[in-house]
Design a protein around this nucleic acid. Structure first.
Length: 322
DNA sequence: CCGATTTGACCGGG
DNA sequence: CCCGGTCAAATCGG
């Protein structure tokens, strides 16, 4: 069987994801959203590379449902062609940064909302790699389920003001709406596994008062994102309503794949999951400052959803199941 | 014992 | 005053 189709598929998807990323890079979309996109891109290319490596020796590839690799086009349904305006205006990243950093008001007003569904209704899947500490819970007007409030664990230690709130959806109790607010400024100081030590990395960033606390640094959340999640995100606001899917299946399917993935990840020095150090500033373009929201649906066990009826949730825009 | 969660109080905006 | 968000004391639990 020719894996080339899949490879092309993956590469194409990677391209489209990259385009989307580019289009929102300068927006006030949350770092989480961007991270997810990046992770998605990486995953696509990882899969493509894996496929190439496997070559056509792939008696092995036969074992996995082909559909798991190829996301039915829907996955990257950037239906409405990426509005060129967005793209054009976003190039030349260096420059535009000034524009944004110019004025900084208070806290960034943006909110990024993602929607996550878990196959088992557990909340564990909603972990995004940051450590959160719950500080409140409230019942909301018309909602069946209460809303929980979390803040970054290192709020005091590192003055990280990131928060998030999680709320179970009325319709489908396995689906959570997660809204992120604020920016992670915390530094993953303790990084156990390998990870280039980096020489003079200051954990304490006091002097930054002048500028602002910017140095967000690499998130290790990606490690967690590795969980087999299928995520459909769509930007509602001004940005392109693009939906894409998460790697899901392929991970769980090959063990080798994981190895492949991890090997690439840490030791080789190839900064796979490191760095993309755009420091996201506090953009505050009051005009644009509307809320960008992202809707994502994730399923943990790729194998499960074939049998799972609730796949019909509204935003399961695609019959992405097999 | 210490850090995380729970849960009602508190507070500010509409 | 209502509602949503946050604080903080009590409680949990490893």
């Amino acid at each position: 069987m020719d894996t080339s189709v899949y490879i092309i598929n993956e590469l194409t998807q990677g391209m489209e994801l990259a385009m989307h990323l580019k289009s929102i890079l300068s927006s006030e979309s949350s770092p989480e959203t961007k991270q997810i996109l990046i992770q998605e891109i990486i995953s696509s290319y990882d899969r493509a590379m894996l496929l190439i490596n496997l070559g056509d020796s792939g008696a092995q590839t036969a074992t996995l449902a082909p559909s798991m690799l190829s996301q039915p086009e829907s996955s990257v349904s950037i239906d409405e062609t990426p509005r060129s305006q967005d793209f054009n205006q976003s190039f030349d990243n260096q420059q535009e940064e000034k524009v944004f950093t110019k004025k900084r008001k208070t806290m960034p007003t943006w909110k990024d909302q993602i929607r996550i569904s878990t196959d088992n209704g557990l909340e564990g899947n909603t972990d995004d790699g940051h450590s959160w500490r719950k500080y409140g819970q409230k019942t909301i007007l018309g909602a069946k389920f209460p809303r929980s409030y979390y803040r970054c664990t290192y709020r005091h230690a590192q003055n990280c003001m990131a928060r998030k709130q999680v709320q179970r959806t009325d319709e489908d109790p396995t689906v959570f709406d997660i809204t992120y607010r604020g920016q992670h400024t915390c530094n993953p100081s303790a990084k156990p596994s390998a990870q280039r030590p980096k020489s003079p990395e200051k954990h304490e960033i006091k002097q930054n008062n002048l500028q602002r606390l910017i140095p967000p640094k690499s998130e290790d959340m990606l490690a967690n994102l590795k969980e087999n999640l299928r995520v459909n995100t769509s930007d509602l606001d001004t940005t392109v309503p693009c939906s894409f899917s998460f790697p899901s299946a392929s991970f769980a399917t090959f063990e080798n794949y994981q190895q492949f993935n991890y090997l690439q990840g840490s030791p080789s020095g190839s900064n796979y999951f490191t760095e993309w150090g755009n420091d996201f500033q506090y953009y505050d373009d009051s005009n644009l400052s509307g809320m960008i929201s992202t809707t994502a649906s994730a399923t943990n066990s790729p194998l499960a959803f074939s049998a799972d009826p609730k796949d019909l949730s509204p935003f399961n825009n695609s019959g992405f199941l097999l």
